[in-house]
């Protein structure tokens, strides 16, 4: 699988998920075919798009082709962490699954 989104378990929302076109971001820390699915976090002023979530382990931003929702599972290839998307204070964040 190319997209880091491993499974869509998220949400009871019936609205279809937004789809995103992923451009290259200059991220070069994974093999070329996976690079557009990640980008470097730009610090505290960086705002995440609906298809993005920050890896709490290595601080890389993980990007999916589709909008993310609470309950989705994603994979962070740069640090090999498996993550679950959860909602915290109205924002989507990732929680590590051990």
């Amino acid at each position: 699988m190319n997209d880091p989104l491993e499974s869509q378990r998220g949400g009871t929302e019936k609205r279809p998920r937004q789809v995103f076109e992923l451009d290259e971001t200059g991220f070069n820390e994974v093999p070329p075919r996976y690079r557009r699915f990640y980008r470097r976090w730009k610090g505290t002023a960086d705002s995440l798009a609906p298809n993005e979530v920050k890896c709490p382990v290595c601080k890389v931003v993980i990007r999916s082709r589709v909008e993310l929702r609470a309950g989705d599972r994603v994979y962070c290839m740069p640090c090999m962490s498996r993550l679950e998307v959860i909602e915290e204070n109205g924002e989507l964040v990732a929680k590590v699954l051990y």
Binding site: E29, V57, C58, V60, P78, C79, M80, S81, V96, Y98
Partner: peptide, 15 residues
């Protein structure tokens, strides 16, 4: 970039 893998291994393996 190397450290990302190393801390990832540490957390995931020890977790």
């Amino acid at each position: 970039a190397d450290e990302r893998r190393h801390v990832g291994f540490g957390e995931n393996r020890i977790g």
